[in-house]
Write a protein that binds this DNA or RNA. Structure first.
Lengths: 225, 225
DNA sequence: GTATTCATAAATATTTTATAAATAAATTTG
DNA sequence: CAAATTTATTTATAAAATATTTATGAATAC
């Protein structure tokens, strides 16, 4: 059978054990990491359907790690924490956490929240390759081709292009793009966006002065075709 | 301009008031219902982007109501509850609740969970298209087509057209339009409006001298068909 | 018929955008 | 670790797009 995979990132062996037993007896396949670094490596090698992330890891700030994950991992991440501060919860959710649970948690509740999170995952369709005229984006391989020629993009350029391409035809406002790519607090840095759009156009447009893919909607934002 | 709508279903007036203040100050549009029945009717007539549902309503069992909603309503439902029993939470999440919060809740946390839930909603396809004769306005993509040909509008032109189109058949006074598009303090700048109406007509009317969509009501304002 | 309101073109002012280039920060390489 | 390289951020400025103002003749109300 194809069991659903869950990655646990927690430094306490007792909790990992507890979670492992609970999850495996509910027919999930469990992978474990004791540190943030280890967790990132495991997830990158073999992305799980869901990550249970302890926010209080010794080697790396949990919120940092969450933001790192969200640069490329778009499935569910449930945060586990001994903290119960409003600020902590708000920050986690705004940084893209799917859910937030306070330790000690109740197993049945955790399982229900996991089911809910996975259910949501599976309604989202995931297309591996976006094609648009002479442009191809392979979301799995993270490569971009123009006229079948590979183009090298930086992380930010790639994320920006993906965001645009995933919303083909829609105007994306400056605010929205800045929030999605740079995060909260950068929503007024419109100039960042301009610089990167110019950069992207140089790389993917046949004639950057007459862009065919990334169109400007003056006063609003950008639109991708 | 286009505020996100949230429906509160709760029998306690104090909580409704609290929520209303918190939500409205965060730029959501709020609708309220004191009973389950009332909530169902309101939601059916005008589906909100998110429902905040108190599970302990006097007239109907909250879990029942949730199941009812889930038969047709596929956006986010966040459960509010004084209960904190595992069983209750598990049941709600398994019945399709997006999230579960225990009263008393912290406002910032609720707001963060609302943002998170709505963010998820909006990744799903939602089409809102106003059609009017040969004219089409796609409110999500922010595009306007005349005879299936895309027409480029500036921000102000687009906002103006939307305002008119959303009030098809009604006379909108100069004052009202100026207040909505330019804001308070511009209500006497009738000339602005004339310039932009002429501009719009050039772009969307087949024959701008004999407008079919934007009609003048001399001395009063404009009417859209 | 006169006063008021309206449509429109055109001139001017303002805002927004594109882009190069400089600096800072992060990452890679030896 | 330090130099080299890449990438991100900041600054500056010219160009483009848009908004506002002005002017004038046409339409409408009374």
């Amino acid at each position: 059978m194809n069991k659903i995979e869950i990655l646990i990132i927690d430094d306490e062996p007792a909790i990992r054990k507890l979670l492992q037993i609970a999850l495996e007896s509910n027919d999930y396949k469990v992978t474990q990491a004791a540190t943030g670094k280890e967790g990132e490596i495991l997830a990158a090698n073999h992305p799980p359907e869901l990550i249970l992330l302890d926010i209080g890891l010794p080697d790396i700030n949990g919120h940092e790690l969450l933001r790192e994950f969200r640069k490329w991992y778009n499935k569910s991440i449930i945060i586990l924490s001994v903290e119960n501060s409003e600020e902590d919860i708000v920050s986690a959710l705004d940084n893209g956490a799917t859910d937030y649970l306070t330790k000690p948690f109740r197993t049945a509740e955790l399982l229900a929240r996991i089911r809910s999170a996975i259910r949501r995952n599976q309604t989202e369709e995931s297309t591996a390759i976006i094609t648009c005229g002479n442009l191809q984006i392979d979301l799995v391989a993270r490569t971009v081709k123009v006229n079948d020629q590979p183009v090298k993009l930086t992380v930010t350029e790639y994320n920006l292009l993906c965001l645009l391409a995933k919303n083909e035809g829609k105007v994306l406002t400056h605010h929205y793009v800045l929030k999605e790519i740079w995060g909260r607090g950068f929503q007024t840095e419109t100039q960042y966006l301009r610089v990167f759009i110019a950069q992207l156009r140089k790389k993917i447009e046949t004639n950057p002065n007459k862009p065919e893919h990334i169109l400007t909607e003056s006063g609003v934002g950008y639109r991708f075709y």
